[in-house]
Amino acid sequence: MHELSIAKGIMANLRPWLDEQPESLRVEEIVIKCGPFRAVVASALVAAWEVVRAENPKTAESRLTIDNTSIKIHCNDCGVDFDARRPIFKCRKCDSDNLAMSGGNELFIENIKTNSEE
């Protein structure tokens, strides 16, 4: 359940910004960019956020949306590039196991939607 630590990380990153916002501001949605190498269970992070968000009235009704990214995979034998939602170990084109992976390490707030945008 390291997702609770990550949910606390969301609040820690938001706090200085929230403190500067008017009292009437309400966060409606927070979009989290999340890569497959960060071992985050989306439903567990959403559940953890529903506990942590109550710390601040400006986030108390906010919902969390997870934007899952992909890993970029390159086959060193046939040269094909493709995206995958999780690591794979056989080339989809030539079945080679000589692959290189990049990306997939993202874990950050991508966007915040508030009532001030309505």
């Binding site: 990380g9 820690a12 990153n13 200085p16 910004w17 707030i109």
Partner: peptide, 19 residues
Amino acid sequence: DNKPEQTQDPIGRDLLSAN
């Protein structure tokens, strides 16, 4: 202090930056 850097913009900063 277990706090992230005190920049206000929360967009794009790793969620475990305090750790």
